[in-house]
Structure formats: C-alpha cells, structure tokens
Design a protein around this nucleic acid. Sequence first.
DNA 1: CAGACGTGGAG
DNA 2: TCTCCAAGTCT
Length: 376
Amino acid sequence: MAPQAPSRKSADPTQAIAPQLLAWYDANHRELPWRIAPRELAKGVRPDPYRVWLSEIMLQQTTVEAVKPYFRAFLKKWPDVSALAAADNEDVMKAWAGLGYYSRARNLKACANAVAAGGGAFPDTETDLRALPGIGPYTAAAIASIAFNRPAAVMDGNVERVMSRLYEIATPLPEAKPEIRALLETLVPNDRPGDFAQAMMDLGATVCTPRRPRCMLCPLRDDCLALAHGDPEFYPVKAAKAEKPARRGAAFVAVRPDGAVLLRKRPEKGLLGGMTEVPTTGWTARQDGATESDAAPFPANWQKAGNITHIFTHFSLELHVFRAEIHQIATPNDHFWAAADDLHGEALPTVMKKAIEAAIPGATRKPHSIRPKRPK
DNA sequence: CAGACGTGGAG
DNA sequence: TCTCCAAGTCT
C-alpha cells in the first residue's frame, strides 16, 4: 500500500457544483405559476406533469413574463390534459394568439390528444416523452427531471451559456453542444435533479446573463474558468448569423357599416400556420413599392390607411394597409366577417393586429370588463 | 444540417 | 434605431 495523496474529493469542483447551486437555488427561490412552493416540494409533493409540460412548451424561446398570463389563462380554461384534449382546435389557437411560434399550439393540442387517448398520464421517461409532438430533447429532459425526478441532462440556452463560461468552452455553438452535454452529465445529481435543472436555468436567467453577468453574486464563481481568466461575457462563442431579408406586401381591411371586419384563415402549415388574417397580397422581396390596391381581393374604394412593419425571425415585413367601407359585397369564398366586439378574441397574430389597428385604431383592443358608462 | 418559425423586452 | 435574444422543435 503505497501512501496516496490525501483524498481531495471534497475539493473536486465537479462534485461541489450541484450542492453549491442547489443551496443558491433554495436561497433565491422564484415564485412562478407553474412551480411548487419549496415547502410543498420538501414534503415530497411532485409538480403536476400537465402543468410542467404546458409551461415548458410555452417557455420555448419565450420569456417568463410573456408566458405567465397565457399559462394562467390556459390552466383556467383547460385544467388538465383531458380538458385540453376535448377542446376545439380553434379555441386553442385563439388562446395562443400573440404568443408566437404557432406550431407549438398545434403540437400542444396533438400532444394532449395523444396523452388523453393513452389514458391521460404523461410518460415518465425521456425516451417516451421525446416521442410526443412538440417535445424535443430539451423538453423531454425538463419534464423527466422536474415532474418525475429523473436525473436527465436538461440543456437549454441558459445552461449552454453557464456551462460555456464555467468550462471556458472555445468551440462555437451549436457545434459545442455535444461537448457541453457530456460535461453537464457529470454534474447532474441523483438527488433533486429537477431542482438542479431549474437552478441552472434560473442562474442563467438572473445571474449568468448574456451581457453584464453578475459574477459577484454567482454561487459558482470560484469554479468558473472564464471568470478566472477574465472574460465571462465572451462566452459562449457563437457562429455568425445571416442577414435578414426585407419583404413587402399589402393588407386589405374591409369594414362593414356595423364595424365587422373581413377575415380568413391561413393554411395550417408554414408561417403563422392555422392563424387568422386580413386578406393580403403575397409577401415578396420586390423593392419597387408596387403594393397597389389593384391587387385587392375585390374592387372597392380602397384607401391607403398607413404602413406597418413587423420583424419576424428570418425576415422583416412592410405591409401597406388599405381600408374600404363595404356595403353590399358577397363574402368571398373562405372568408368570414368578424364582429367588431369579437376581434380581440380572434386568432390574430400580432402582425395582423397591427395591420387592423392601422386601419381601425382600437379595433383589436380587449374591452375593459367594467364599463362605467351606466346611465343614471 | 441549416433554415423556418413570432414576439416583445432590454441595452 | 438597432441588435440581441428567451426554458427549442421540426424538416
């Protein structure tokens, strides 16, 4: 027995990460509508998989603040997965309107249908979760760990950033993902894996931020290689991104004397799939400004009402908005009239609300529940 | 694998 | 104004 160097296990950074992070998480708990209070969690209460799933889908590429009201509204309308499965597709799209990435809503409904058809219980393993529509590697791991206490490697944008800095990963994203995942797997604890995952994401969201990280407040500052070497903000290294092209088109807001507006439904697939719109021309890259009213869906006294611009992920759009008062025109095929009072409840994406607002200011605003204009 | 796919907030 | 980007997934 040759004498070994003294055991330094307690000083092994890898072993220390999870406990340090969890201690920080416990001391900095964030109240979120889909989270179980620490007191309940300590008693062994598990989160409702339906709520975990719903929140995770909504949180994909979407900020916490944007999700909160939608999460509450969905939970009130559809308290469990069987209720959501029994809902109309159209009602789900209407409830999702404004949140973006509408394929998520279609997949959400498809997933609810699948789970309900299978008895109403969500799968409790990454592999089985991954097979459901709208659930990719991240969401499968998140649900498995948070709802079912499984030690899965939950890797989102926050975790990638934290790990890139902690280990000073020089490989650019997304190429570095496998490398980061391998390191992450060495950190995931068997005890409280769900809290570990949420702690990593909270840390990325509140301390290890993309710009101006608050390293002085970081529970992992003593282990962070990027900080030790001086420039955490430099990480993660990312590949250069492409320029976004510009597109133009015209939108036509037809208004009846009673204030109703002519709408139609977009194709199920593709941009704003399954959502509602006002009639528009195609959105082309042409720069000649030829978005004239002669391209209107039908002849009318089209008046220019203004221009709106909207930035999508991969292109910018300028829409020339035209308005016309319509009296006796037959409703075109596949179109419908939405009453003025119902506009705010239609499945209108933000870009379409902007177009309608340009023609009829205030038209898509949700009316106040209290109307203090009662006669005496 | 790279591109499609929304929106609103922060700096 | 403008760039970045937020708890990604699908094709």
